[in-house]
């Protein structure tokens, strides 16, 4: 099964929070992280996300696939940002402090380094929060929490259904590709890339057909058990909100408002250490 992103059951403060609260935390961090280029706010968020991560008792080893991916992605991103636009930091901060000249138009400037540091910081906050959310929220509870913040239950439930049936569809795909391979549709590494793409498409038809008949039966079965009967539904897995939940939501509201105020102090969303 897919082990890259999944729920890691543990008993921790974060795990005990209701899915709704965790969704609110996730959204707060995402909004602030996206809206702000203020280094002070970003550093504060970073510290909070590290604390959250420690509280969750999730070890780095358990999420090593994602961490490796993040490291590779950040390094690439860092290099490419510089190659494509080495002067962007100077434009942004309105000054230019050269540290060294590499070659041609490539100069290392403090402004560019600072700008790229901020970009990295955003990813470093965003990724762990997303991983944290996914690995501490029971997938069943996820749909319930989406519904509890006002998303219609029919839409929320589709998330739960997807989680339920993705392993089945993966299994179908695996079986179909093997039986096709037995009839000469090659998908191995020794086949040319274009051929492999063409052959993958051949697998799609049986996969779509099996999935469609699956969907038909599921929707019948859901209707037969009253799905869609009322405007609302209750959830077996929804956790009751506790004092800790309310406290966390208030806390989120505070950092969201505080963060936005600090960010917009200077008339834009930058913290500019280069202004004299």
């Amino acid at each position: 099964m897919n082990k890259v992103l999944n729920y890691i059951p543990k008993d921790s403060f974060i795990h005990r929070l209701s899915g709704t609260t965790k969704l609110v935390i996730f959204l707060t961090f995402s909004i602030l992280c996206g809206a702000s280029f203020d280094t002070r706010v970003l550093i504060a968020l970073f510290i909070l996300s590290v604390i959250g991560f420690l509280l969750s008792k999730i070890s780095l080893r358990e999420i090593r696939v994602m961490t490796t991916f993040l490291a590779v992605f950040l390094t690439l991103n860092f290099i490419l940002l510089f190659i494509f636009n080495p002067e962007y930091g100077c434009e942004l901060y309105g000054s230019r402090t050269v540290v060294a000249h590499l070659w041609g138009r490539y100069y290392i400037t403090l402004e560019q380094l600072f700008y790229q540091f901020n970009v990295v910081l955003k990813y470093v906050i965003g990724f762990p929060i997303a991983i944290l959310f996914i690995s501490t929220t029971n997938p069943s509870e996820f749909a319930a929490s989406l519904n509890s913040i006002g998303i219609p239950y029919k839409a929320s439930y589709s998330v739960s259904l997807a989680l339920r049936y993705i392993p089945d569809i993966q299994k179908d795909y695996h079986e179909i590709s093997q039986s096709q391979e037995a009839r000469g549709v090659a998908l191995g590494k020794d086949v040319r890339f274009t051929e492999r793409i063409k052959n993958s498409i051949k697998i799609l038809m049986p996969l779509v057909l099996t999935s469609l008949s699956r969907i038909d039966e599921i929707s019948n079965s859901m209707q037969l058990r009253s799905f869609g009967k009322k405007k609302k539904r209750t959830w077996y897995v929804l956790k009751k909100m506790t004092a800790a939940d309310y406290a966390m939501i208030v806390f989120c509201a505070v950092i969201l408002i505080g963060g936005l105020i600090i960010t917009n102090q200077g008339g834009n969303n930058l913290y500019n250490p280069f202004v004299r």
Binding site: P139, S140, S160, L161, L163, R164, I218, S221, M222, R225, S226, F227, G228, K229, K230, R233, T234, W235, Y236, V237
Partner: peptide, 15 residues
């Protein structure tokens, strides 16, 4: 339909 036995049994009642 549910992700666990309990949720599947409860499905009609939830609705």
């Amino acid at each position: 339909v549910g992700l666990t036995v309990a949720e599947d049994i409860a499905f009609a009642l939830e609705n």
